[in-house]
Amino acid sequence: MNITEILFWLLTAVALGGALLVVTSKNPVYSVLALIATFFALSGHYILLNAQFLAVVNLIVYAGAIMVLFLFVIMLMNLNTETEPQKNKWLKLAGTIAGGCFLLVLVAALREADSKSTMALVGEGDTGLIQNLGKALFNEYVIPFEISSVLFLSAMVGAVVLGKK
């Protein structure tokens, strides 16, 4: 096993463990912290795939901004283990079985799928660098970029309107 494979399996273990902890933990604050760990692991995956720009954006936007917003809301509402609503155990079991069947069907369908190439290139290619992404973003994708700024403005106005009621 070379260093790339070791890092891949380590990051995979952290991502899956964090994701399971998000679903299973009783205290919402622990869920948020586990989700932050998952996002860090996914950023590590992006760096392994040589997509540095997305790795940094993932850290800043998701782990930095969005999860802090979640944490603030949870602390504002003072949610903890006692106030946590619980489904009854049969519904939980049914949900888990349904999700497991979903995973089983998708894995069985995609296990033998034909793809153009069987390997994802790790650590090579300049696609994920900010120079190339910026050129493509401001040439071919400039209209979606501007529209997304309008989306942000409307989301901001919407959040303020909803919050002021």
Partner: peptide, 28 residues
């Protein structure tokens, strides 16, 4: 790394998300 491993990792994460939506009652 083989592309299959990434597909399975993404599927596992997605399914955990689905299970979470189905089994939790807290909106957050």
């Amino acid at each position: 790394m083989p592309i299959n491993l990434y597909i399975f990792l993404a599927l596992a994460l997605f399914s955990i998300g689905v299970i979470g939506v189905l089994t939790r009652r807290n909106a957050i």
